[in-house]
Computed example of a mutant assay.
Amino acid sequence: MTVPDDVETFAAAVGPDPDDVLREMDDRAEETGFPTVGPAVGGWLQQLAGLVDADRVFEFGSGFGYSAYWFARSLPEDGEIVLTEIDADELDDARENLARGGYAEMSRFELGDAIDIVTDYDGPFDVVLIDNEKDRYVEAFEAVREKVPVGGVVVADNMTAGPFDFEEIHRVVMEGGETDNEMARGVADYLGHVRSADDFETTLLPLGEGLAVTRRLA
């Protein structure tokens, strides 16, 4: 399930205005079909970083830097955002996009497996975005959970749509059904895992393809 296009467009219009770099990235996504979170969700990422007064952000999966760019707009000049990507060309594009926006100094660009990379970084990370392989979401959360401070948030994309349809993930989560779709199984496992995680609280933001926002309470 995705939010109707008119609601998504309305949410984007109400949210923060994109700059020219973001508009160009949106055009690229539309022309090529590259999966970004889109401007409505991007505005929420910027807002979440601002709400928790974030200084540091870590991304499990960054593509050409779209979500990182939204996050960066809320970080202080001495803040830090770590982008990870397994595609070298995409990471080069992310480097260029963040530099064009004036965010190169705060950005760290890491090529490789994000779950391996995060072990090389000390916390805290005030905001974490999980958007790598869906069947590794639980693994990503466990790799970073102790680096999230009280009040920090972990955001996971593709909770209601993606490489599966909403009816399938709804059936698996709400009815405990089985699925042959590894991606849907991974998302269902992730939702069950974070909902039962000690000292964390999770809510669903049904914009884009669905975000699980998990806040550390203690």
Rank of each mutant, 00 (worst) to 15 (best):
N132S: 15
E85M: 04
E30R: 15
L98D: 00
P206I: 10
L45S: 03
A156S: 13
Y137V: 04
E85P: 01
V127A: 07
E139R: 12
M159L: 14
D78F: 12
A114V: 10
G208H: 03
N132W: 01
M106P: 00
D87C: 10
F71A: 05
P206L: 13
P163W: 06
R28M: 11
M1I: 09
K134V: 11
L45M: 15
W70F: 12
T202H: 07
G79I: 10
E96G: 06
G50I: 03
Y121A: 05
F58I: 04
G151M: 08
L217D: 09
S67Q: 06
G102L: 14
A188T: 10
P35T: 09
G192N: 10
D53G: 15
D26S: 14
R195C: 12
D20Q: 15
P16V: 09
G176T: 13
E30Y: 06
E168V: 11
D93F: 06
I169Y: 03
L217N: 11
L111E: 13
F71G: 03
F141N: 00
I169T: 03
E139A: 14
R185C: 05
L129Q: 02
E167G: 13
L98E: 02
D6S: 13
D19I: 13
R28H: 14
V148T: 03
R185L: 11
L91D: 02
E24R: 15
K134I: 12
F200D: 01
G43S: 06
E8T: 08
V173M: 14
P206G: 12
A143R: 01
G15K: 10
L51A: 14
A13I: 04
L75G: 04
F166V: 09
P18F: 12
E24K: 15
W44R: 11
D157M: 04
D122T: 12
M25C: 10
R28V: 11
D92V: 14
A88W: 06
L22I: 15
E182Y: 02
N132E: 11
